[in-house]
Structure formats: structure tokens, C-alpha cells
Amino acid sequence: MNDLSTLITRLPNDVGGQPAGPLDRSEHELLPWEKRCHALADVLDFRKIINTEEKRRGVEALGSEQIGKLGYYERWIVAFANILFQKGLLTPAELAVRMQAVEERQRSSE
């Protein structure tokens, strides 16, 4: 199989059997936003807005570069945004405007 075929038919997360280095057994406590993000995933699932399989596919759809550079919950929140856009529940403009407002609010409370 050539490189392009592999690129489109092997998902970046499909790592079973691939060469990999030693384990890093360090563990980190979830940051508050990460825990909220995990809770959001569960709520989106049982509210039937974004189910868990949709989330998984959404993370895969970020593509190798984003998957490689973003952390675990960073991938989730970006995937949620993309899926909400696709479902017409949110628009990129709405999210962008609200993100600016959130940043402004945080800045002015510092």
C-alpha cells in the first residue's frame, strides 16, 4: 500500500501494534476546565446532542497535525465545536464572538 493510501485509510489513533517507546507513568490531576470538558462530553451524550461515537469521529477528523499537537481535552473541545457547527447548533461566528467576550471578561477581572 502506498503512503497516500495509508494516509487516508489508517486513522492516526489506530496505533495497535505500531512501534512505540517506553511508558511514562506520570499522572496529572485534571485542570478545572478539563474536568468541565469531560462533564460536557457526558452531558452532550445523554442529552443526545453529540454521542460518544460522534465525539470519537470528530477527534479523528481533526487530522494528524492537530491530533499530534493538541492535548487530550483540547482535542475534545475543538471536536465539539466542529460537530456543533456541522449540526447547525452553533455557528463559527457565534462561538468566535462569545470567546472574545469571555476573554474580555477574564481580562477585566484580573
Binding site: L31, W33, R36, C37, L40, I49, G71, Y73, E74, I77, V78, F80, A81, L84, L89, L90, E94, L95, R98, M99, A101, V102, E103, Q106
Partner: peptide
């Protein structure tokens, strides 16, 4: 972390 936390907050508020 800033932008992702901001995104999480914004998404939660909008929903």
C-alpha cells in the same frame, strides 16, 4: 491552556 479554556467556557455558555 487559555484558548481552550475560553472555548470550553464559550461553548458551555452558548449551549
Amino acid at each position: 491552556d487559555g484558548i481552550f479554556e475560553v472555548m470550553e467556557t464559550a461553548v458551555r455558555e452558548l449551549l
